[in-house]
């Protein structure tokens, strides 16, 4: 069993507390009308942080969905600025520059899973000694993309780790309405590779499972599906009201298993953490978030930025629209056929 060292566990707690504080502050920014819809991290910290701490940021790729990016501090503190760019709707938030091996936010459910398999296959073809870890939720596991990607990964033996974060709710759909399978981990049987279920509130267990999966992948033994069992402690997003559907006794029980409080207690007992450290980490997290938010807001935004990154070279229609936008003519994006921004 791969156990993280004391120093690693302490670093992981720093990342977990930081993610929670920054997520809560971003929630407040949304309630103040300063950022758009966001998905809070509460309850998922140990899974995300434990997983990425078992990876090598120099070689391994991380493909988040939409809840994880704020907890990817290990991959570079500059990720936070991209998180804030994304939150204010700046197109630059959709691109995390090299050499950071993290792909941007994915809102369309499960589409990052086939991306992960393609990326992993590509690493093998290029003799790049890295693995790919992809996060997705219990809800995403019902998408066709999951099954297609899982199947292909099994056939190819691609170095990919499928990390299903089972937080019991796909917005308001409970797990028992999501699948009749015994577990999400059990679905790996159909793909021909191992599936393991871990307590996603136990950062050591997540670390160990990802470490083992990574070693398998690097040894050419193919993919692993990991199901991390957690409980979503907050609303799905800022646009959700879980009091309409989450049973009060369930959330109360889940709060007793809070992953951040759990690791805090363990490290306090080991003499590695105290209130002063906690306060210091929280203050640093807020300072970092404020700086990232300011940097994001002062990032220039060209009028025609929304047309960048569609094609390597503008198509004729795109060029016409770009010229129209820059000339300040609001209606010039509409072509002769009245279609706006068609892909034809």
């Amino acid at each position: 069993m791969a156990r993280p060292t004391d120093e690693q566990r302490r670093e992981m707690l720093v990342d977990m507390v930081t993610a929670r504080v920054q997520s809560q502050r971003t929630w407040n920014l949304q309630r103040q009308g300063q950022v758009g819809t966001m998905a809070p991290i509460e309850g998922h910290e140990a899974t995300v942080v434990g997983a990425v701490h078992a990876l090598d940021p120099g070689h391994d790729w991380v493909l988040p969905q939409y809840r994880e990016p704020i907890a990817l501090r290990r991959y570079g503190p500059e990720i936070l600025e991209h998180v804030m760019l994304y939150n204010i709707g700046h197109p630059a938030g959709g691109h995390i520059p090299a050499p950071i091996r993290v792909l941007p936010y994915q809102i369309s459910l499960a589409t990052q899973i086939p991306h992960a398999v393609g990326l992993a296959w590509g690493l093998t073809l290029q003799d790049d000694p890295g693995v790919v870890l992809v996060f997705f939720g219990d809800g995403s596991s019902s998408e066709g993309d999951f099954y297609e990607a899982g199947n292909l990964a099994g056939v190819l033996g691609a170095p990919v780790i499928f990390l299903c974060v089972n937080n019991q709710w796909a917005i308001s759909t409970p797990v028992h309405r999501q699948t009749a399978a015994e577990s999400f981990a059990a679905k790996a049987a159909a793909f021909g590779f191992p599936g393991v279920q871990v307590d996603g509130n136990d950062v050591d267990a997540v670390y160990d499972a990802v470490q083992t999966a990574r070693e398998r992948a690097l040894a050419g033994q193919g993919p692993t599906l990991i199901e991390a069992v957690v409980y979503r402690l907050g609303p799905h997003t800022t646009a959700d009201d879980p009091t309409r559907y989450v049973p009060a006794e369930e959330i109360e029980a889940a709060q007793g298993r809070d992953p951040v409080l759990r690791l805090c207690a363990e490290l306090e007992e080991a003499g590695l953490w105290d209130d002063a450290v906690q306060a210091e980490v929280e203050a640093a997290a807020l300072t970092a978030l404020d700086a990232a938010f300011e940097a994001a807001k002062s990032t220039p935004l060209a009028t025609d930025a929304m047309l960048d990154h569609c094609y390597t070279e503008d198509t004729q229609r795109l060029a016409r629209q770009r010229a129209g936008l820059l000339a300040g003519a609001g209606h010039s994006g509409v072509g002769p056929d009245g279609v706006v921004g068609s892909h034809a």
């Binding site: 809560q24 407040n28 509460e42 879980p242 009091t243 959330i251 109360e252």
Partner: peptide, 20 residues
């Protein structure tokens, strides 16, 4: 930002469902 740590925690507590 000195006092904010407590206020954010309070804000978060306020919005989560807390049992009965």
């Amino acid at each position: 930002t000195p006092v904010v740590a407590t206020t954010t925690v309070e804000a978060a507590t306020g919005r989560t469902t807390s049992g009965n």
